[in-house]
Computed example of a mutant assay.
Amino acid sequence: MRLTALRQAIITTIRAKLPALAAVDSHPGRFNLDELRRIVTRLPAVRVALMAVPDTGEVQTGERDITVRLAAFVMTGDKRRLPKDEAALAIVEALLDMVPTQRWGMTALTGAEKVSAENLFSGSVDKQGVALWAVTWSQTLRIGEDIWQGGVLPSEVYLNDDREQDGKAGAYDKVTP
């Protein structure tokens, strides 16, 4: 379950780098106003979601590269001396600094790219006393089994030597691994 591991790695990294957040959790995807009312109990918060897998491709090893679109939803409320929109912008700025090229400690993953942020302000969201932003990006994750992993090494290997030896061009040398 590399997709689940990716989402958890993102959450762990954000928690470590932004410890002042009240909550950094996963979320299944987009949400409506009713869902927003339910999840804004602990603010400021970041909710991480896998939004789409718009592209897949096979690799020569038998594995697949999948492009994953991800989002970190930033939610803040008003605090004494810090309006919610300023708090949200501070978290958005921290994420925009953190996310580009991030690999979240995973090896079968490209660096984050196409990072952007969008203000999701609306009158309904504002009535809930919340500022809401989405920081989005794409990454390519390799999944599946490598057909070459754990293969058997041959007992003999022959290397082509382009230099002339004993009047013969391109002699082969036997090498034992």
Rank of each mutant, 00 (worst) to 15 (best):
S138A: 05
Q102M: 09
D85E: 15
D25Q: 09
V46R: 00
R69A: 03
Q102W: 01
P83S: 08
D25K: 04
V48S: 01
L18Q: 12
E113P: 01
M98G: 05
G144I: 07
P54A: 11
I14T: 09
D85S: 14
E58N: 14
Q149F: 06
R64F: 15
K114T: 04
Q149S: 08
L120A: 07
I91H: 03
W137M: 08
A117C: 09
P100I: 04
M98S: 09
V99S: 05
P28I: 07
G29E: 08
R42G: 09
H27C: 03
A52V: 01
L70I: 06
R47H: 14
M51G: 03
E145S: 12
I91D: 05
V92H: 00
P54L: 10
D126S: 12
L33V: 02
W148A: 13
L109K: 04
Q139M: 10
R103P: 06
G62P: 14
A90T: 10
G77I: 02
Q102K: 05
D78E: 10
P19T: 02
V24I: 10
L82F: 11
G57C: 05
V48L: 01
M51Q: 14
L18S: 00
L96S: 11
G129M: 06
N119Y: 09
L109N: 01
A112R: 06
V92E: 11
H27W: 10
G105I: 08
A16E: 14
P44L: 05
G29S: 02
I66E: 03
M75E: 04
L153W: 10
R47F: 11
Q139V: 10
D65W: 04
L153Y: 13
E35A: 02
E145F: 07
G105M: 04
E58I: 12
L141E: 06
E113Q: 14
G62Y: 03
A23T: 14
Q128Y: 06
M75L: 13
R64N: 15
A112E: 05
A22L: 04
A23P: 07
V68Y: 09
E93W: 02
T110V: 08
L70F: 05
Q102S: 01
P19Y: 00
D78H: 10
T13H: 12
Q139N: 11
T61C: 00
A23D: 08
V46G: 13
I66H: 13
L132K: 00
M75S: 09
D85Q: 15
I143W: 05
S122E: 07
R64H: 15
G151C: 13
S122T: 13
E86M: 15
P19V: 03
R30F: 10
M106P: 08
T56E: 14
K84S: 10
F31C: 07
L36V: 01
G123T: 11
N32H: 04
A72P: 03
D97N: 05
T136N: 00
D55I: 09
S138V: 04
M75Q: 06
N32Q: 09
S116H: 12
D55V: 11
N119P: 03
